[in-house]
Simulated assay, not measured.
Amino acid sequence: MRFVHCSDVHITEDYTKYSLLRLGWRRWFALVELTLGGRAKRYLRAPEVLSAIVRDAESHRVDHLILSGDLTAYALDGEFDGARKALGPLAEDPRRCSIVPGNHDVFTPGSIRADRFARHFGQLLKSDLPEYQREGPYPFVRLVGTEAAVVGLLSTRRAPLPAFPYGEIGEAQLGGLAALLRDSRLDGRAVLVTVHHAPRNRKGRPDRWNHGLRDADALLRLLPGPRFAVLHGHIHERYYHPATADRPHLFGAGSSTEAGHEGYWVIEVADGKVVGGQPHTPAL
């Protein structure tokens, strides 16, 4: 079986057409990054690149596409619309696509109150084993074929300030995941756990305290060995740490649509285990 893993696609609207009042103070800081920092330019072709990744997934004959968050630049409705359009029919089909939100998808209190992510992508949050949901729709489970299961976790929380985009899964979801892993319906399946924040950085260490996954160790303890993988984004670097006896495979997807760094993983599953992955660049 094959899975495509991409992340941090950051579909970006034209922010100059919005008033500062409409954008809100959190996005005022973002405007500096978008303009002087060059972020808007780096993601100018993001919809086109995401569509190319979807086409590649079809050509690779993958069984499922996984996107580990940050579909948007700063959680505007138009950005969610753009991501959904770029994904095409996959955005409507939970059998073929799983997505979890990133911190940029809940960037403002208004986007959280409106539950903007779920309004656009709630159709992909349905679970094949809903009895294990502990926090809204999370964790959700997708049974893919007879050899794999995709599990979606929520790690994004309302940051006190934009400079503190750390993540936390929480005891409730971790308890649901622990119970799920004991379910006989997962016997013989590789388990690909999707979460936005990184359990480990490129060097194999915990991420910065203000940016990382606060309960990373608790997550990794539940997933020992090559049967398991954690697929994440958030850190805009693409890297892979193979599984050990007491830790799962770790796939960091980087930023899949950033100019000059476009790419994604094709992850292979065989005999109920994750056997590795290969990085790919989309055919644009």
Score class of each variant (00 low, 15 high):
Thr12Trp: 00
Asp14His: 08
Asp14Phe: 05
Thr16Lys: 04
Lys17Arg: 15
Tyr18Asp: 05
Leu20Lys: 08
Leu21Asn: 15
Leu23Ile: 05
Arg27Val: 07
Arg27Cys: 05
Phe29Gly: 15
Phe29Gln: 08
Val32Asp: 09
Thr35Ile: 03
Leu36Ala: 15
Arg39Asp: 00
Ala40Cys: 12
Ala40Trp: 11
Ile53Pro: 01
Ile53Cys: 02
Asp56Ile: 06
Asp56Val: 02
Asp56Thr: 07
Glu58Ile: 01
Ser59Tyr: 11
Ile66Cys: 07
Ser68Val: 03
Asp70Ala: 06
Tyr74His: 07
Asp77Trp: 03
Gly78Cys: 05
Gly78Val: 04
Gly82Cys: 05
Ala83Lys: 04
Arg84Trp: 13
Lys85Ser: 07
Leu87Ala: 13
Pro89Ser: 13
Leu90Val: 12
Leu90Phe: 10
Val100Ser: 14
Val100Gln: 14
Asn103Phe: 02
Asp105Lys: 11
Thr108Cys: 05
Ile112Cys: 12
Arg113Phe: 13
Asp115His: 10
Asp115Phe: 09
Phe117Tyr: 12
Ala118Tyr: 12
Ala118Ile: 02
Arg119His: 10
Gly122Ser: 13
Leu124Pro: 01
Leu125Glu: 12
Lys126Phe: 03
Lys126Gly: 14
Asp128Met: 06
Tyr132Trp: 05
Gly136Gln: 14
Gly136Pro: 14
Tyr138Gly: 11
Arg142Thr: 04
Leu143Tyr: 00
Gly145Ser: 08
Thr146Trp: 09
Ala148Met: 13
Leu153Trp: 05
Arg158Ile: 02
Ala159Cys: 12
Ala159Arg: 14
Pro165Trp: 03
Gly167Val: 14
Glu168Ile: 06
Glu168Tyr: 07
Leu174Gly: 06
Ala178Gly: 10
Ala178Asp: 10
Ala178Met: 10
Leu181Lys: 01
Ser184His: 15
Asp187Val: 02
Gly188Pro: 00
Arg189Lys: 15
Thr194Ala: 08
Thr194Arg: 04
Val195Phe: 08
His197Ile: 08
Pro199Met: 08
Arg200His: 12
Asn201Glu: 12
Lys203Tyr: 15
Gly204Glu: 14
Pro206His: 14
Pro206Tyr: 11
Arg208Glu: 15
Trp209Tyr: 06
His211Val: 01
His211Arg: 11
Ala216Gly: 06
Ala218Thr: 06
Gly225Arg: 03
Pro226Leu: 03
Arg227Val: 00
Ala229Thr: 06
Leu231Gln: 02
Gly233Met: 04
His234Glu: 06
Ile235His: 04
Arg238Ser: 10
Pro242His: 12
Pro242Asn: 13
Thr244Cys: 07
Asp246Val: 00
His249Tyr: 05
His249Thr: 00
Gly252Ile: 01
Ser255Lys: 03
Thr257Arg: 01
Ile267Val: 09
Ala270Asp: 11
Asp271Gln: 12
Val274Cys: 14
Val274Trp: 07
Gly276Ala: 08
Gln278Cys: 02
His280Asp: 08
His280Arg: 15
Pro282Cys: 07
Pro282Gly: 09
